[in-house]
Simulated assay, not measured.
Amino acid sequence: MKLTVHTFASLDGVMQGPGSPEEDPSGGFDRGGWVVPFMEEDFGRVVDSWFARTTELLFGRTTYDLMAGYWPQVTDPDDAVAAVLNGSPKHLVSMTVTAPSWANTVSVIADDVAGRVRELTNRPGGELQVHGSWRLVQALHEAGLVDEYRIIEFPVVVGEGKRIFRDGATASSFDVVETQVLGSGAVYRVLRPTPFTRGAFSVEDGRETVALDV
């Protein structure tokens, strides 16, 4: 299975509490709900496309708890996202949860996260998807396990909060597979990690030159 990461991000890289002020106030975060003013038809279409490709789901504990408390209440048979979230096999990364509450949670990963996730991705199937789960996403990035990032970046600065990539994260470049500007002005990108590259500008014989991989 391909490991794909899905998240919403502010211009300053924050992914915390996009859906409501009460969603995730940990660390004193009081600016939750910053995605809601930008929700429109294009946004819904992109998110629906994510879940249309789901085979299995992988969550960190905080995101799992939030979703497990919300999505089982959505019983509308026409809600495709709810159907996928509630019905798909789910894996939870947690050292404290022993009796997961969300239906179809098939495993709890308490140790050797990178090794266990690698085993999951070696199984047949389409996509093992991660949604939210900031600490898990950072760990998967450090382990080089993410095949594709799908990020919607919104035209808002939150100022502080949980970020996709932590300070000191392993350097990486990305191939931009897809870019869309949504009706709200948000930008959707599909990114595939590639080895980090860099270059330098210099002047030779009075002309500016560019050298890569310096």
Rank of each mutant, 00 (worst) to 15 (best):
M1N: 09
L3S: 07
V5R: 01
V5S: 08
H6L: 11
T7K: 05
F8A: 09
F8R: 00
A9D: 07
S10I: 09
L11A: 05
D12E: 10
G13W: 07
V14Q: 01
V14M: 02
M15T: 08
Q16R: 08
G17Q: 09
G17E: 07
G17D: 11
P18E: 11
G19I: 03
S26P: 01
G28V: 10
G32E: 06
G33F: 10
V35E: 07
V36H: 07
P37L: 13
P37D: 08
F38V: 05
D42F: 04
D42V: 03
D42R: 13
F43W: 14
G44Q: 12
R45H: 07
V46F: 12
V47D: 00
D48Q: 13
F51R: 02
A52W: 08
R53D: 12
E56G: 05
E56S: 05
L57D: 00
F59N: 06
F59A: 10
F59D: 02
T62S: 12
T63C: 11
G69W: 08
G69T: 03
Y70G: 03
Y70C: 03
Y70W: 13
W71I: 01
W71N: 08
P72W: 12
V74Q: 13
T75E: 11
P77C: 07
D78C: 05
D79Y: 03
V84Y: 00
L85D: 01
G87Q: 01
P89Q: 04
H91G: 03
V97K: 09
T98V: 12
A99H: 14
A99G: 00
A99M: 09
P100L: 11
A103S: 14
A103P: 00
T105S: 05
T105R: 02
T105F: 10
V108W: 11
D112L: 03
R118E: 10
R118I: 00
E119A: 12
T121C: 14
R123E: 13
P124G: 10
G126F: 02
E127P: 00
Q129G: 01
H131F: 15
H131A: 08
G132Q: 07
R135Q: 13
Q138R: 14
A139R: 13
L140I: 04
G144I: 07
G144T: 04
L145W: 11
D147K: 06
D147L: 10
Y149T: 09
I151G: 03
E153L: 13
F154C: 09
F154P: 01
P155Y: 06
V156A: 10
V156F: 06
V156I: 10
R163K: 15
F165P: 05
F165H: 04
F165V: 04
G168T: 07
T170G: 14
T170H: 14
T170D: 04
A171D: 11
A171K: 13
V177M: 14
E178W: 08
Q180H: 14
V181G: 03
L182H: 03
S184F: 05
S184N: 03
A186G: 04
Y188H: 14
V190N: 04
L191W: 01
R192K: 15
T194F: 02
P195Q: 12
P195Y: 01
T197R: 08
G199N: 12
G199K: 08
S202P: 00
S202M: 11
V203F: 12
V203Y: 01
E204T: 14
E204M: 12
D205M: 06
G206E: 02
E208N: 10
A211M: 11
L212T: 11
D213S: 10
